[in-house]
């Protein structure tokens, strides 16, 4: 098994579990599903951005360029941004869900149908 097969399985697994949780009726599971989905997407970028067992993209003292082989820094920056954004979204979503629970009185999304009928 090569490395990217392994990571493909990991990405696929995270997406699958994320989706499965999103399809549950519990709003708590919904959030966890979204969290897993976020992890999956981050790893997807990490993997398809060119995965290598490489040094961190840091320039050592006295050098002017990082010594090869170094990992592609751009996907890392993208993922960092994405992690932070999904944290913000997740935090908001968690509180939203707890407020909705308080307003509706249940954690079952099947009861959240007031706005569509």
């Amino acid at each position: 098994m090569t490395l990217n097969v392994l990571l493909a399985i990991l990405v696929g697994g995270l997406f699958a579990m994320g989706i499965y949780l999103m399809l549950r009726r519990s709003i708590v599971k919904l959030i966890m599903g979204l969290a897993l989905l976020g992890h999956g997407a981050n790893l997807l970028i990490f993997t398809s951005g060119g995965l290598v067992r490489a040094r961190a993209p840091l320039i050592e003292e006295g050098e002017t360029i990082p010594s090869a082989p170094f990992a592609d820094p751009l996907p890392q920056a993208l993922i960092l941004t994405a992690i932070v954004i999904s944290f913000g979204v997740l935090a908001f979503m968690m509180v939203l869900v707890s407020r909705a629970y308080r307003a509706v009185g249940t954690d079952d999304t099947d009861e959240f149908t007031g706005t569509d009928h």
């Binding site: 979503m93 939203l96 909705a100 007031g114």
Partner: peptide, 21 residues
């Protein structure tokens, strides 16, 4: 934080987050 707002927001947020993913 009205009930309708919260219910609507959960659907809005969930599907849009999927889109973002």
């Amino acid at each position: 934080s009205e009930r309708g707002q919260l219910e609507g927001a959960i659907k809005y947020v969930t599907l849009n987050l999927f889109s973002s993913a």
